[in-house]
Structure formats: C-alpha cells, structure tokens
C-alpha cells in the first residue's frame, strides 16, 4: 500500500510525464544526438552506417571556415544591435503609454500587433517600404533633400542594420507589454516619497522606477539575447542571408550546411558551438544577476 506522500509523488509524475516525455524525445535527445553527430562525418544524404568517427576535425575546420566565422560575427552584431534596441524602444514606449494618453488602449493594441503578425507578411511590407528604388521610405528621404538615401536591405553595408530595425519593430511588443505591466507594480508611495525629497520626473524614473522593475528587465534581457542569437525566420524571409553573406547569421549557416551542403556532422558541430555561446552568455548574465538586482 502506497503512502499518501508516495501517491502524491506518482500523481505529480503522471501529470508532468507528457511534457517530460516530449521534452526528452524532442529536445534533450536531439541535443544529445547533435553532440554525437558533430564528431562524425554524417551526411544528410548518406546512410548512418556509412558514417565514421572524425574526432574533432569538424570543430577544427570551423576556425578556418570564413563562412562560419562570418556568420558568428553577424550573429553577435545582430545581438549587439537588437538587444539594446528592443529593450530601449520597449521601455520608452511603455513609459509613454503609461501616461494618460488619448486612445491609449488602441495605441497599446497597435504596438503589440507586430509581435503577433505573420513574419512573411511583415517581411513583404517592410521590403516594399525599404525598396531603395521606389519605396516609401526613400521617397520621403529624397523629398526632404537626401539625394543618396540608404540602400537598406539591398546593400551589404546596411542590410544587417535594416534587418535589426525590422526585428526590433516586430519584437518590441513583448518588451513593451512586460514593462508596462511591471510599471503597475511600482509602489506609488516610493515615487511620492522621492518627489517629496525633490527629485524630478526623470530622476524619479531612474532612481525609483527602474530599480523596482529590475527583475523583469533582467528576464527580458536574457530572453532577448537568446532570441536574437537563435533568430532564423526574420533573416530567412527578408534576405535569405544576402546580399552576399552580409546577413547570414549562424542559424542560417547551420541550415544551409545541413540541407544545402548536406554536411550534417559539420552542421552539428556548428550547433554545438552555438549552444555553447548561448549557454556562456546566459550563465554570465545569471552570474551578474545578483549584482544587477542589488
């Protein structure tokens, strides 16, 4: 006869079993398998039995592969621009909408809308807006006297920045809503006390509001960094990594290596490196969390 505690434990396991099985099968097992495949020369179009162990050859090749190093550089650049961009814009929008504004609910809905919009539709619209030859943006810039407006997505010099702008526009909804919700939990008595002590609105925001929402800020920062490094869809639908390889980020390079070059082993070595990069950044952020929150 099982004790009540044991019964509760088994029941709990029964409840989490569907998720746990799904996680083990579709997350943990593929991750584990990636490590194994990364030390083999498995090709997507060859039988697994024909594969052989190659040790660290795939990893060593990464250092001399300019396509890989270029994609890592692009991924890091993407994150460096995207994370502060999306956080800052989200915060500013939340501050503005938090004030008593006309049609505030409507604006709130509109700002969140890109976040739930279909990425393909978003990319078509933005591509047309950013069309360097006859798009709305460049027509406006020309009309105000800028003779050589940017080429946006069509130049190697501006394509990554353009993708980041669109990514920030698309992703800012989540940051904005989270910041807005966090603002509601800032104790008004603290703000009032600070005002009485002589702070102005800006000082009040910096010294009272921001420290009160640091947990949410930290969470958003972590998720933004991970999202930006894992990003694939937006680049695939906007530029497919071009022009040239100017927007080929690491996940895109991994997919190309696996499904265009058919080098599954080498692609897995890249995924392991990406896993390590994301993990290292996350660990660093977590370790800095306490200091951040203090």
């Amino acid at each position: 006869m099982l004790s009540r505690k044991q019964r509760e434990m088994y029941t709990a396991f029964a409840f989490i079993a569907p998720y746990l099985i799904g996680y083990l099968l579709f997350h943990f097992f593929p991750i584990f398998l990636s490590f194994i495949i990364s030390v083999t020369d498995v090709r997507y179009i060859s039988r697994i039995g024909d594969a052989s162990f190659v040790g660290l050859r795939n990893y060593l090749e990464l250092f001399s592969d300019t396509e890989f190093t270029n994609s890592v550089k692009n991924s890091l650049l993407f994150s460096i621009m995207y994370v502060p961009g999306v956080m800052l814009v989200g915060l500013v929008l939340a501050v503005l909408i938090n004030k008593k504004l006309y049609a505030r609910n409507l604006l709130r809905g509109m700002l969140f809308m890109p976040y739930v919009s279909n990425m393909v539709a978003v990319s078509v619209v933005w591509s047309l807006l950013m069309d360097p030859t006859g798009g709305v943006i460049n027509n406006v810039l020309r009309s105000i006297g800028i003779d050589n407006p940017p080429m946006w997505l069509m130049s190697t010099k501006t394509s990554l920045v353009s993708v980041v702008i669109i990514a920030v526009w698309q992703g800012v909804g989540l940051q904005f809503v989270t910041f807005l919700a966090a603002f509601q939990n800032v104790p008004t008595e603290l703000k009032e006390a600070a005002y009485i002590d002589g702070t102005n609105g800006f000082q009040n925001f910096i010294h009272v509001t921001l420290p009160c929402i640091r947990s949410q800020t930290f969470l958003l920062m972590i998720t933004s960094v991970i999202t930006s490094l894992k990003n694939y869809t937006i680049v695939q639908v906007l530029t497919e990594g071009g022009p040239g390889t100017s927007t080929t980020i690491l996940p895109l390079n991994i997919v190309n290596t696996a499904f265009t070059s058919f080098r599954m082993g080498y692609a897995c070595a890249q995924t392991v490196v990406m896993f390590v990069i994301v993990m290292a950044i996350t660990v660093l952020q977590w370790s800095g969390r306490k200091r951040f929150e203090d």
């Binding site: 080429m151 069509m154 990594g241 071009g242 022009p243 040239g244 190309n256 265009t260």
Partner: peptide
Amino acid sequence: AAAEINKIFMTEGGLYGIGE
C-alpha cells in the same frame, strides 16, 4: 553539389548585380 553551386551563383552573382 548541384544545389550549393546554384546558391553560390545567386549569392555572388547578386553582389555583382548590385554593383558591390
């Protein structure tokens, strides 16, 4: 490497096409 060669032509040819 047929698929990859086609992709290479698109990538490199595209850069030539935009004058870069």
